[in-house]
Amino acid sequence: MDLLLQSLVNGLSIGSVYAIFALGYTLVFSILGIINFAHGAVFTLGAYFTYFLIGGQNNGTGLLAGAQLPFGLPFPVAIILGGALAGLVSVGLERVAFRPLRARGADPLLALVSSLGAGLVIVNLVQYLIGAEILSYPTNVYGHWAEQHPSLNLGTASFPIQIRTVQVIIFGVSLVILLALLYLINRTKMGKAMQAVAENPTTASLLGVSTDRVILFTFLLSGLLAGISGTLVATSFSISGPYFGLAYGLKGLAVIVLGGLGDIGGAVLGGFVLGLAEALVPGEYTAYKDAVAFLLLFLILMLRPQGLLGRRLIQKV
């Protein structure tokens, strides 16, 4: 029972990271109707950016072997700055990989390939400059106290629920980001403009919404979310190399379809569903844990392709 609760709390924690990562995906889809396959690469970049911003040294054997910034920022500043840099990269991607296609009204499938090419460029650039080695964050990124208490008991002495402290912190941080995001989307002018463009770009531009600015902002936000979630995952495990984000990129697809492609609430729900489902895989089957996302993806597509929260679309003849 305590083990089950432990798994559930862990599932919520990883689910919250899936949720903010997938939100970045789904925001772009809701605005442009395309899937940005470079999103996983931006996630990777975020983790690297933050690592260097806190003064981490490159243990890799790439061109910049041994390199280190001459300063180290406090982690809370670094993660935001790292996310912002990832956001800028994402905006750059929009410029080079998406905008030319959009300008021509090209088949959305081509955006899939061009964003994939862009993702390959990023991943291989990281490999070239940094190297393929694992980079680990120092154990004290979340402060001295967290380092001294690597796990917390959320239960009682007789009924222990042991959770890694970093999981609890990640959960807290993700929740704060989720709430901020919901506020941004539902309460601010830019958020409303985003919703308007997602609903109908033509009407939105007639109403005076600048579609270009909304798209730019969406990519910035999407990259920021990817970068921060990349950092969070890296502090919990490590940066496993340039391909760090690939698996998350693919699982993120499962998350956004699970909730309903392009649906913001759906991405959050999907993230938690996946996190919990993975956490509930019995111990003897952990090797199959990575298949859970895709099993869910396949099932939802067979049973309810519009996703848990999506509306059913009727084709007009």
């Binding site: 296609l101 061009s114 994939l116 390959l120 460029v121 650039l125």
Partner: peptide
Amino acid sequence: KDLRFIVDGLLLMLAAIYLP
């Protein structure tokens, strides 16, 4: 050499954009 995979990705991207 090591730059080729970067160029490979770049060409993929450019082809998708300029050879629709």
